[in-house]
C-alpha cells in the first residue's frame, strides 16, 4: 500500500491557526494577481478529480502560495457499504499531487449502491452505525496514509434507531479511529435549532481536544410542518451573528484553530470573503491572547 511521503498515520494535519476561505474558480485570477493575506485555502476534492485544464492550472499556482485543505464531499463514509476503492484511489492521487496540510470528510452518506445522490444524508447514532463508520474511517486513513478530520453534520431529521447523542457518537469515533474533528460551528447551530438542543452544550460535549479545523458558513431559515424554525445549511449568505457568537464561545475552549469561511452559493466578490476571513482572524487573535493569559483555559 502506498503511503504518502509527508503523511504518516501518526502525523496530524497542520493548517496554521488562521482564517481561510473556500477556493472558487470565480476568484482564481484575482487571487493570483494580488494574493490576499489569508492563512489557507480549501477545495472540494471532487471538483479537482478531472484530468486537466484550468482547475489544475490555477490550483497548482494558488497552492504554491497558501497551505491547502482538501475537503471531500463524495466519499460517503456513513454508507452501509465500504468506501468506494476507486474513489479512494482518486483521493490518493489528488492528495499525492497537492500534498495538502489537511484532509477532511463528512459524517454522512451520499452514495447508495452505484447511485450518487449528491447530498449529505444523515446516519442514525446507534452501535451498528458507529461500528460501520469507524471501520470506514479506518479504511480511509489506511488507504490515504493520513489522519483525517471528520465533520459534524447539519441534519434535518433524527432517527428512532439512535441510542447515542451526536456528541457521544462523534467522541467514540474519534477515540476508536484516532481521526480528528472538523468542528462545523454553523452545523452545530443548525442542528441544535432543528432538534431543539442547546448549541453551547453541544460544543462543550464535542471531543474538543481533537478539533483541528473549524468551518463557518451562513444558513437559510425555513420552518417545519408545525411552524417551528428549520434551518438549512445553505452556504449562501454571510456567517450569522449568532454563529459568530457560538464560534467565539468555542474558541474560549479551543484557543486559536484554523477556521474556514465556506461559501458555495451566491459567491460574493473576493474582498467580501476576505473581510469575513479577517473577522474570524480578529476572534482568533483574541483567543490567542486569552489563552496566553490563562494557559490552563482549555478545560477538557
Amino acid at each position: 500500500m502506498p503511503v504518502l511521503a509527508n503523511a504518516s498515520p501518526e502525523s496530524f494535519p497542520r493548517l496554521p491557526s488562521r482564517g481561510g476561505f473556500g477556493l472558487k474558480p470565480e476568484h482564481f485570477r484575482e487571487i493570483l494577481a494580488a494574493p490576499p493575506d489569508i492563512g489557507f485555502v480549501e477545495i472540494h476534492a471532487e471538483n479537482y478529480m478531472v484530468a486537466g485544464g484550468p482547475f489544475h492550472h490555477y490550483l497548482e499556482r494558488i497552492r504554491s502560495l497558501y497551505p491547502l485543505s482538501i475537503h471531500g464531499v463524495g466519499l460517503s463514509i456513513g454508507a452501509e457499504t465500504a468506501p468506494d476503492e476507486a474513489h479512494l484511489d482518486r483521493l490518493a492521487a489528488l492528495i499525492s499531487r497537492y500534498q495538502p496540510e489537511s484532509f477532511s470528510e463528512h459524517l454522512a452518506w451520499s452514495s447508495h449502491g452505484t447511485t450518487f445522490l449528491n447530498d449529505l444524508l444523515p446516519v442514525p447514532y446507534c452501535t451498528e452505525s458507529l461500528n460501520r463508520v469507524c471501520n470506514h474511517i479506518d479504511r480511509v486513513q489506511e488507504r490515504l496514509g493520513l489522519r483525517m478530520l471528520l465533520e459534524n453534520p447539519a441534519t434535518y431529521v433524527e432517527f428512532d434507531a439512535s441510542t447515542l447523542s451526536e456528541t457521544d457518537f462523534i467522541s467514540e469515533i474519534v477515540r476508536r479511529t484516532g481521526c480528528g474533528l472538523l468542528l462545523d460551528v454553523n452545523n452545530v447551530y443548525v442542528s441544535a435549532v432543528n432538534h431543539h438542543r442547546d448549541a453551547r452544550s453541544v460544543i462543550r460535549a464535542m471531543p474538543l481536544a481533537a478539533v483541528h479545523q473549524i468551518h463557518l458558513a451562513g444558513f437559510a431559515t425555513d420552518s417545519d410542518a408545525d411552524g417551528y424554525p428549520l434551518l438549512i445549511d445553505s452556504h449562501g449568505s454571510p456567517v450569522a451573528q449568532v454563529v459568530w457568537d457560538l464560534y467565539a464561545f468555542a474558541l474560549d475552549y479551543l484557543g486559536p484553530v484554523a477556521t474556514l469561511i465556506e461559501r458555495d452559493n451566491d459567491i460574493p466578490a473576493l474582498p467580501v470573503l476576505v473581510a469575513e476571513v479577517q473577522q474570524a482572524e480578529a476572534l482568533l487573535r483574541a483567543a490567542a491572547v486569552s489563552k496566553a493569559r490563562l494557559p490552563q483555559g482549555l478545560a477538557v
Binding site: 445522490l117 449528491n118 444524508l121 434535518y156 434507531a161 408545525d226
Partner: peptide
C-alpha cells in the same frame, strides 16, 4: 418519507425529509 424518522416536537418528519428530496433534485 421512510419509516423510523422522528422530530423533537412531533411535527411531521415528511416536511423535513423533503429538504433532502429537494437538495438531491435541485443540485
Amino acid at each position: 418519507c421512510p419509516p423510523g424518522l422522528m422530530t423533537w416536537n412531533g411535527s411531521d418528519p415528511g416536511r423535513r425529509f423533503d429538504v433532502y428530496r429537494n437538495n438531491v433534485m435541485v443540485s
